[in-house]
Amino acid sequence: MEINFILNGKGVKVKTHPLRRLLDVLREDFDLSGVKEGCGEGECGACAVLVDGELALSCITPVGSVEGTSVVTIEGYRETAKYRALEEAFSATGAVQCGFCTPGFIIAAESLLSKTPRPTPNEIREAISGNLCRCTGYSGIVEGIKRASERGEGLW
């Protein structure tokens, strides 16, 4: 089947089986290796992407279901001013250790901030509850998202 969608702002066509995992299509066919496989069953959030601006887990999303949508991965998102605000904040608050989960957290953060530009710490914790981190205990990540929301005035 030929599947058309917008990937990081550009229209793409991919001829493949529609039940293939979006994760594999992104990593293998488009070399977008910032999308990580941590668990393969929707538990850890390392494979998070945005589908039409909504948080989605690419390891349990068949590529056929994103036809006609706009998919954004960390590779697309990192070109934005919002990303830079998040990266600065993550750096300042010590949100990153091994880094394997981090792109997924950035995507989850964008999904939150796009709807709730000034979240409370509890709202942040709920919004990232589908992203697992084994290194940081989450405090640095929660603070990082908070900091980005405060400093990224006007971005969200």
Binding site: R78, E87, A92
Partner: peptide, 21 residues
């Protein structure tokens, strides 16, 4: 006194190469 971790930008932006990458 803390400094910015040197590896934060490439990890955060998904540029760091882990073995599966």
């Amino acid at each position: 006194s803390s400094v910015s971790r040197i590896d934060t930008p490439e990890k955060t932006g998904g540029k760091a190469s882990y073995i599966a990458d």
